[in-house]
Simulated assay, not measured.
Amino acid sequence: MTGELVVDGLHKRYGDLVALRDMTFHVSPGEIFGFVGSNGAGKSTTMRIILGVLAADSGEVRLGATPIDFDGRRRIGYMPEERGLYPKMKVGDQLAFLARLHGMDNATAADAVARWTQRLGVAERVDDNVGDLSLGNQQRVQLAAALIHDPAVLVLDEPFSGLDPVAVDVMSDVLKEKAAEGIPVIFSSHQLELVQRLCDRVGIIARGEMKALGRVDELRSRGGVTLEVSGPSADSRWADGLPGVTAATYGESVTELRIDPAVADDQAILAAALRTGPVHRFATSTPTLTELFREVVSA
């Protein structure tokens, strides 16, 4: 079972609380999809419905054209936000047990344990109880548990929580490797700089609804580009009425313009600025994903 992960029209209600409303998106093979939102926005609910832990009131989850059933869910690698490991069980024994639950024989499970504990930097801890590990190493073991059966889809809820920068790099590399193998990867995270750097596409969810969805660069530029011009006098309001300038904030020595790149002519804007006096700085910037997130959620 391989193909695109499709979340199609999920609705979920708890009494008067609408947890999800028409939640729809897809994750293509080989794509890393960032699923972001405030606490309580509906991210974990969506992921649990994908896993079959929760049932949607309506809508469905498919892999390709096939609705995901019990057997299909065994091909999903899932990493929950809350650590789901047995604290008094040894790391190696636990991973081998989980691999056998997914249908592996003892020898194949042992090979998978050795491979993933080595890859994730916890090979020397295989004989330690999970509860004796640091939180960061527990997180590495939790990822190994999601990967142990060579899943066809990866669904990870806050996988980078509690990791040091080296461990973040290791986990990022693993996710990119799995995507390069053609596996759809979806993960949630509050570390938006990491999402911006790692993901192909992003969905921003608020109050159970998808509020923004698309490629990271497309989302960042959808509200226009900011142009900072240092030098012209604010009193002249020199940028008013220029084509493509959608907003202007005049400071004492710096003017910030919001421009539509498809319409605005930066050379014409520069010429207008120079007519008022010397220009010391003329630079564009695109909103970060963090700034976009604040804008979407507050709206």
Rank of each mutant, 00 (worst) to 15 (best):
E4V: 04
D8S: 12
K12P: 04
G37A: 00
N39G: 10
G40V: 03
G42E: 01
M47W: 11
I50L: 14
L51A: 05
A56D: 08
A56N: 10
E60A: 14
V61Y: 10
F70M: 12
F70W: 12
P87V: 14
V91S: 02
A96C: 06
A99H: 08
A109C: 02
L120Y: 04
V122P: 06
E124Q: 11
V126Y: 01
V130S: 03
A144G: 14
A144N: 02
D150L: 03
L154N: 06
F160D: 05
F160S: 10
S161H: 06
D169R: 15
D173K: 12
V174G: 07
A179F: 14
A180R: 14
E181R: 15
I183T: 15
P184G: 08
S189T: 13
S189R: 02
L192Y: 04
L194N: 01
Q196W: 01
C199W: 02
E209P: 00
L213A: 03
L219R: 11
G223N: 08
E228P: 00
V229A: 04
S236N: 10
A239M: 06
A247G: 06
V254N: 05
A262E: 15
I269A: 06
P278S: 05
A283Y: 04
R294F: 11
E295G: 00
S298M: 10
